[in-house]
Simulated scan of single mutants.
Amino acid sequence: MTITNPSTPAARRRDLILRSLGWSTIAALLLAPAIAMQMGAEGVVWTAGDFVFAGIILVGAGIVCELVAWRSGDMFYRSGAVLGLFACVALVWVNGAVGIIGSEDEAANLLYLGVIGIALIGAVMARFEARGMVLAMIGAALAQVVVAVAALIAGWGSTSAIYPRDIIGTTVIFALIWLLSAALFRQAGRKIA
């Protein structure tokens, strides 16, 4: 991955719009629960710690997106990185909010941290090069499926009213996100070759 900054006015304008949209989305995600709590929305009870945790995750992902945008001008690479980051953040968010395997209190949900770990370790091992990132994202997709299969075989989360649809549906969605990210990195790698 080479450091490239967009030099055309159209590319700079596009990047400014995308950056503004990204940071506005982060702000909206942090403000939404505060507004919902002020309006008395049932079930929305965030503590200061919840806001700090969400802020760290979302702002951290935003900073990583900024670094990716700074280091790569390739839109396929950028899109693959954003999808991979989205999958990581969404896995943490969903597990913290409601859980994938049963409720958020089900210890088996911690296995999804391993999925994120595989994606991150794979990315570091690939030195963030597009071709290696393909394998890291495919590895994360496979790990996502392995966790679901283990949960179904072991019967984890079977007390959920929508078991096993919750595990299967969530797994399909996340696996597709990881695989789409891999496809985007693959396209970015082709442009380099």
Rank of each mutant, 00 (worst) to 15 (best):
N5A: 09
N5S: 13
N5D: 11
S7V: 11
A10H: 14
R12Q: 14
R14Q: 12
L16F: 06
L16G: 08
R19Q: 09
S24D: 15
I26F: 14
L29C: 14
L29H: 02
L30M: 13
L31N: 01
A32M: 12
A32Q: 11
P33K: 00
A34S: 15
A34C: 12
I35E: 06
A36L: 11
M37V: 04
M39V: 14
V44C: 08
V45T: 12
W46K: 02
T47N: 02
A48H: 09
F51N: 06
F51L: 15
V52M: 12
V52I: 15
F53Y: 15
A54F: 10
G55Y: 01
G60A: 07
G62A: 02
V64N: 07
V68P: 02
W70S: 14
W70D: 13
R71I: 01
D74V: 02
M75A: 11
M75T: 10
S79Q: 05
V82T: 07
G84K: 03
C88N: 12
V89F: 10
L91R: 05
L91S: 15
L91H: 13
W93A: 14
G96R: 01
A97D: 15
A97F: 12
A97S: 13
V98G: 02
V98P: 01
I100V: 04
I101E: 03
E104W: 06
D105F: 13
E106A: 11
A108S: 07
N109Y: 01
L110H: 03
L111P: 04
G114V: 00
V115F: 00
I116V: 03
A119H: 10
G122N: 01
G122P: 00
G122C: 00
A123S: 15
M125A: 09
A126T: 02
A126V: 05
R127A: 15
R127Y: 07
F128S: 10
A130I: 01
A130E: 07
R131H: 13
M133T: 05
I138Y: 09
I138S: 10
I138L: 12
G139I: 02
A141W: 03
A143E: 05
A143H: 02
Q144D: 11
V146E: 11
V146C: 12
A148Q: 01
A151I: 06
I153T: 07
S158Y: 04
I162C: 01
I162Y: 01
Y163E: 07
Y163H: 04
Y163G: 04
P164N: 00
D166P: 05
G169N: 03
T170F: 06
T170R: 04
T171A: 05
V172Q: 06
V172L: 14
L179F: 06
L180S: 10
L180C: 07
S181M: 06
A182I: 05
L184V: 05
F185S: 08
R186Q: 13
Q187M: 12
A188D: 09
G189Y: 05
K191A: 10
I192F: 04
I192P: 05
